[in-house]
């Protein structure tokens, strides 16, 4: 993925590396970023951009439909749904990116070591990963959160832990394929430390599959994390994330459908755009790769 002198083009006088141009001209990448970036910006701004305070109740206007003072309507306590969706997105997105960070931080080193060491170490590490993967995703999350107190940090750790094996697998197979490359053998011959070989020689050359897998995991992490908070095992009130919002909304569907529809839509669009982004990245960076797995 190295950019050499003849693979850059210019855009308004600014040089753009070839890889960026190829990414941005990919339809899937372009569309998903065009959706995802505004979502991230709006949620990051949170309370500063929300039209109302997300916690202020207006009992006279409970279950209001969209329009008027409250653009998307109100919930069971008369709180503004638009503001709640914007602020609630913060923990959902934090969870998606945070959990992916956790699984990268642990999964990548495990995969590098297994793929580079080969033999028995590889066998033991990968078996262990298989065993962790044999616990159904949501049950593993439930198990971890039963043991740990529920707060956003622990949810991030729990969801991150669930996806470590998948990151480790992808990293390992990429590492296996480059571990006999001349530059790795040369570093070994120079007497470089194993840490140097793993992180300075191998890692930079296996980033493509890791980036692809990571981007796919963000969507799944949001999906699993919001599912856990739907079960009451995540971030609770008052700063409820989309999962918890939907859990509450479900109890009021006979009073108003909007309470349920807006956070569902936000969740769906966010997860879908990260999935499309992952697909687009794969098309560009690693066209021969196959489907992802749950």
């Amino acid at each position: 993925m190295m950019a050499t002198e003849d693979t850059t083009s210019t855009f308004g006088g600014i040089e753009i590396p070839d890889i960026v141009r190829r990414l941005l001209t990919n339809r899937k990448v372009a569309i998903s970023l065009a959706v995802l970036i505004p979502i991230v910006i709006v949620t990051a701004l949170g309370e500063t951009i929300a039209p109302h305070d997300s916690l202020t109740t207006d009992v006279a206007n409970r279950y209001a439909g969209p329009g008027g003072t409250y653009p998307l309507g109100t919930d069971n306590l008369g709180r503004d749904l638009l503001s709640r969706v914007i602020v609630g997105g913060q923990s959902s997105l934090l969870l998606g990116f945070g959990a992916t960070g956790v699984s990268l931080a642990l999964g990548v080193p495990i995969g590098l070591i297994a793929g580079y060491a080969k033999g028995r170490i590889d066998e033991v590490l990968m078996r262990l990963m298989d065993i962790v993967m044999s616990v159904p995703v949501l049950l593993l999350g439930v198990l971890i959160l039963v043991a740990l107190p529920s707060n956003i940090f622990n949810v991030i750790v729990a969801v991150g832990a669930v996806f470590i094996p998948r990151i480790a697998r992808v990293t390992r197979s990429a590492t296996l394929s480059v571990s006999e490359e001349p530059y790795v053998l040369a570093a070994k011959a120079r007497g470089e430390s194993t840490t140097h070989i793993l992180f300075k020689e191998i890692l930079p050359n296996v980033t493509a599959p890791i980036i692809i897998e990571g981007s796919i995991r963000v969507g799944y992490a949001i999906l699993v994390g919001t599912s856990l908070s739907f079960l009451g095992l995540g971030t609770g009130p008052p700063h409820a994330d989309w999962g918890y919002m939907i859990a509450t909304a479900r109890l009021h569907i006979y009073q108003t459908p909007w309470f349920l529809l807006w956070p569902s839509l936000a969740l769906l669009v966010t997860i879908m755009s990260t999935n499309v982004l992952g697909d687009g990245l794969r098309d560009v960076l690693d066209p021969r790769a196959t489907e992802d797995n749950l």
């Binding site: 599912s227 939907i246 569907i253 969740l267 997860i271 879908m272």
Partner: peptide, 11 residues
């Protein structure tokens, strides 16, 4: 693939 089951169930 992007719909969590609690969303599809609620809908």
């Amino acid at each position: 693939v992007s719909i969590p089951s609690f969303v599809s169930a609620s809908l």
